Measured scan of single mutants.
Amino acid sequence: GSSGLPPGWQSYLSPQGRRYYVNTTTNETTWERPSSS
């Protein structure tokens, strides 16, 4: 899909309704949208 996220990243919603991002390669999580640069 065209999520616009860098490879390996997925976006999720927290129980509070906030969006966060997870790097499935490194298990890093961040509130900031990852850049593909």
Rank of each mutant, 00 (worst) to 15 (best):
G8W: 06
Y12D: 04
P6M: 05
G1Q: 12
R18T: 15
S11P: 04
T24P: 07
P6N: 03
P34F: 02
N23S: 04
T29E: 07
Y20G: 03
Y12H: 09
S37Q: 13
R18P: 05
Q16Y: 07
S37K: 10
G17V: 00
R19D: 07
G8P: 09
V22A: 03
N27H: 12
S3M: 14
G1C: 09
S36H: 13
T29Y: 12
G4C: 11
R18Q: 15
E32D: 11
P34Q: 01
S35W: 10
W9D: 00
R18H: 15
G4M: 11
Y20W: 06
G1S: 13
L13Q: 05
P7H: 10
S3L: 14
Y20I: 06
P15R: 06
G8A: 04
S35F: 11
Y21W: 11
G17T: 00
S11E: 15
R18M: 13
L5Q: 02
P6H: 04
Q10Y: 12
S37V: 14
L5I: 06
T26S: 05
Q16T: 15
S2F: 10
N23Y: 06
W9G: 00
S14R: 01
S36A: 14
S35G: 14
N27M: 12
W31R: 04
W31G: 03
P15T: 08
Q10V: 15
L13V: 11
T30P: 00
V22I: 11
R19G: 02
Y21V: 00
R19M: 12
T26L: 05
R33P: 11
E28I: 07
S11H: 05
R33H: 11
Y20E: 03
L5K: 02
P15Q: 07
G17I: 00
T24K: 08
V22H: 09
T30K: 07
G17L: 03
Y20K: 03
T25N: 11
E28S: 04
P34L: 02
Y20S: 01
E28M: 06
T25G: 07
P7F: 08
S37I: 12
S37G: 12
V22M: 06
L5A: 04
Q16L: 09
L13M: 10
Q16M: 08
Q16P: 02
W31E: 05
S3A: 14
S37F: 11
R18G: 11
L5P: 03
N27D: 07
E32M: 09
P7Y: 07
S11L: 07
Y21D: 00
Y12E: 05
G8F: 07
G4D: 14
S36P: 12
P15K: 09
P34W: 01
G4E: 12
V22P: 00
E28L: 06
V22Y: 13
N27I: 02
P7S: 08
G4Q: 11
N23W: 04
S3Y: 14
G4N: 10
N27E: 06
G8H: 07
V22K: 08
T30S: 10
R18D: 15
S11V: 12
Q10D: 09
N23D: 05
S11A: 11
T25F: 15
E32N: 08
N27L: 13
S11W: 08
Y12L: 09
Y20D: 01
Q16N: 15
G1W: 07
S3F: 14
R33A: 08
E28K: 06
W31Y: 10
S3D: 14
E32T: 11
S36F: 14
R33N: 08
L13Y: 07
V22F: 09
E28Y: 07
P7L: 09
Y12G: 06
R19Y: 15
E28Q: 08
G1L: 12
E32W: 09
P7T: 08
G4V: 10
E28T: 07
T24G: 06
T25A: 14
G1P: 11
G1I: 13
E28C: 04
G1T: 13
P6W: 05
P15Y: 05
R18W: 09
T24R: 08
Y21R: 00
G8M: 06
R33K: 11
T26A: 03
W9N: 01
S37L: 12
Q16K: 09
Q10C: 10
P15W: 05
Y21E: 00
Y21Q: 00
W31I: 05
V22R: 08
T29N: 05
Y21S: 00
W9S: 00
W9Q: 00
N23R: 02
G1Y: 09
V22G: 01
E32F: 12
G17Q: 03
G4I: 09
R18L: 14
N23E: 02
L5F: 03
P6A: 05
R18Y: 13
T26Y: 02
G8K: 04
Y12S: 04
E32G: 04
P6K: 04
Q10T: 14
S3T: 14
T26E: 02
P7W: 08
E28F: 08
Y20T: 02
V22N: 01
P34V: 02
N27A: 08
S35N: 12
R19V: 15
Y12R: 07
W31F: 11
S2W: 10
S35I: 12
Y12Q: 05
Q10K: 14
T25D: 10
S2L: 12
